[in-house]
Structure formats: structure tokens, C-alpha cells
């Protein structure tokens, strides 16, 4: 017999056996054999599966470690970006709140023509109290214009350049503002000191001043409009031998925390010497 015929006969036998097996399987005849074989093989399968699980785990970890490192890096970058976004959002909320208060104040005083300005610098000297704002001559700012916030008076413009201006704070030792006490109508002059507080001088002796009194601008002298809040009396310094008494005034505006201010454009101050 030729080899080609043998192969053909072998294939035919195998096909016949497979068909016979399929027919017998369909009839359910081979099930007992299958069950017996399964019973013999399954413990071995279990052993192999358990033994291979750690190996598979390690191999899987090795395969995914590069992917995990990349994913970790991506997540870190995403977290960093989200943190930055959170900080920016918080800043925007604070700024929004500030601007909303200033806007409310602007609406409350419609006869004031106000322009908002951002504080961009502070005087580095320990002896001078000045701010730098981001509005200048091109925005209509002129020397002497009052600077305020919704809380009260901040100071006045002392120098103007094209796009920025310098603000002399009430607390500067050169600053002097005519003022009165709201409750008693007693007048005086509020001057800056090296300390945090301002000093209200030239209050006549027979006037009663009490701690907590609100001090406002009097408008005398023409430097500032009347009735802008300066601060509150925190201490009275009185000596019967003196002609006048003095009061320490806590400014209504904490200049060290200022970020945005308003410049009063439609007030013509009297002559104020530029620095």
C-alpha cells in the first residue's frame, strides 16, 4: 500500500471516530466516561491553577507596572492641575466678593464717580505709608484725589504717572485730615503716626469723647468730601492743663490687607502738594 493511501485511510478512520463520538455524545452515551475523566483531572487542574496564580500575578504586575507608572504620573499631574485650579477659583471668589462689596458701595453713593484700582505695591520704607495702585493719569487720576473703600477713607493720591499712582495713607506721618466725632460733633485734625493708630488732635477740652466714637471727615480744608469714615476712637489722652485733648483712632480700613481701592474722580480737592 502506498503511503498516500495510508494517510487517507488514517484520516477517514479519525473522522469516522470523531463523528461516532459526536453521535454518541449527542445520545448521552459518553457522559459517564467524561465524568470519570473530569473527576480524575480536576484535582490536577486545581493544583496547577493554584501554583500558577502567584506567577501569573507577578507576570501581570510586571506587564502592567509600566502602564501603572504612567497612569500614576498622569494622575499626579491632573491632581496638581486641579489644585492650582482650586486655588485660582478661591482667589477669584475672594476677588469677586471684594468687587461686589465695592460695587454695592458704588451703588449706595450714586453722586460719587468712582474708579476701582488694584493695589500693586507698598512702600518698602518702615517710615513711610504709601501704596501703589494700577491706575494713572490715563484713567483720569490726579494728585489729591481721595482714595477709599466701602469701609472708609484710605488716603489720597500723592503722585501720578501715566499708568500707576502713589497713594499716601492716612497713617503716614505727613497725612493730616480735618475730622469730627459723629456723636458729639467735636472737631479736630487726624494725623498719621508710626503706630497702627491715628491721632486726633486739637479736640477742645470741654468736648466729651468716649471710646467707640466714630470719626468722620469734616470736609474743612477742602481735601476730602464730608462724612467719609476715618475710624473709631480707641483711647482718649486728656490732661486738664492742656488746651486740647487727643484721641487715638483705629482706622476703619486695614491698609496692610488692602487689595482693591476706589478713587473718587469727581471731587476737586484744594491744592495738595505733590511729592
Amino acid at each position: 500500500m502506498q503511503p498516500g493511501h495510508r494517510t487517507a485511510i488514517a484520516i477517514a478512520i479519525v473522522l469516522t471516530l470523531v463523528l461516532a463520538w459526536l453521535v454518541l455524545d449527542g445520545l448521552g452515551v459518553v457522559n459517564p466516561i467524561r465524568d470519570t475523566l473530569t473527576g480524575l483531572v480536576s484535582p490536577l487542574q486545581l493544583v496547577f491553577t493554584r501554583a500558577s496564580a502567584p506567577v501569573e500575578h507577578v507576570l501581570g504586575a510586571m506587564r502592567s507596572s509600566a502602564h501603572l507608572a504612567q497612569e500614576n504620573e498622569d494622575l499626579r499631574e491632573e491632581l496638581s492641575a486641579l489644585r492650582s485650579q482650586c486655588i485660582l477659583r478661591d482667589e477669584a471668589l475672594i476677588e469677586n466678593e471684594d468687587l461686589r462689596r465695592l460695587l454695592d458701595f458704588k451703588s449706595a453713593v450714586p453722586n460719587y464717580q468712582l474708579i476701582a484700582a488694584e493695589v500693586i505695591g507698598r512702600d518698602p520704607s518702615s517710615y513711610l505709608r504709601y501704596l501703589v495702585i494700577d491706575r494713572g493719569a490715563e484713567d483720569g487720576i490726579r494728585v489729591g484725589m481721595p482714595v477709599l473703600t466701602d469701609a472708609g477713607l484710605v488716603g489720597r493720591i500723592s503722585r501720578v504717572s501715566q499708568s500707576a499712582s502713589q497713594v499716601m495713607l492716612l497713617s503716614d506721618t505727613k497725612s493730616s485730615v480735618s475730622a469730627y466725632i459723629q456723636r458729639s460733633r467735636a472737631t479736630g485734625v487726624v494725623q498719621g503716626e508710626l503706630d497702627v493708630e491715628l491721632r486726633m488732635r486739637y479736640i477742645v477740652q470741654n468736648e466729651t469723647v468716649i471710646v467707640g466714637d466714630v470719626v468722620l471727615t469734616s470736609g474743612l480744608g477742602g481735601s476730602f468730601p464730608r462724612r467719609l469714615v476715618i475710624g473709631q476712637v480707641v483711647e482718649i489722652q486728656q490732661n486738664d492743663m492742656d488746651v486740647h485733648q487727643e484721641a487715638l483712632v483705629m482706622p476703619a480700613v486695614d491698609a496692610s490687607r488692602l487689595e482693591t481701592v476706589l478713587v473718587l474722580l469727581n471731587y476737586e480737592p484744594d491744592e495738595f502738594p505733590a511729592d
Binding site: S126, Y127, L128, T173, L194
Partner: peptide, 20 residues
């Protein structure tokens, strides 16, 4: 600093400045 500021017309008192 106090000397220069006083010379330039600023009010910078030396003795209060020393303590504060």
C-alpha cells in the same frame, strides 16, 4: 534713613522710631 527723610521734608521722628 531717618536723617535722609527728615532732610527731604518727611516727618520721621528718630526717638519714637528707635523703640517702635
Amino acid at each position: 534713613s531717618v536723617a535722609v527723610l527728615r532732610g527731604a521734608g518727611f516727618q520721621a521722628p528718630l526717638w519714637p522710631a528707635l523703640g517702635r
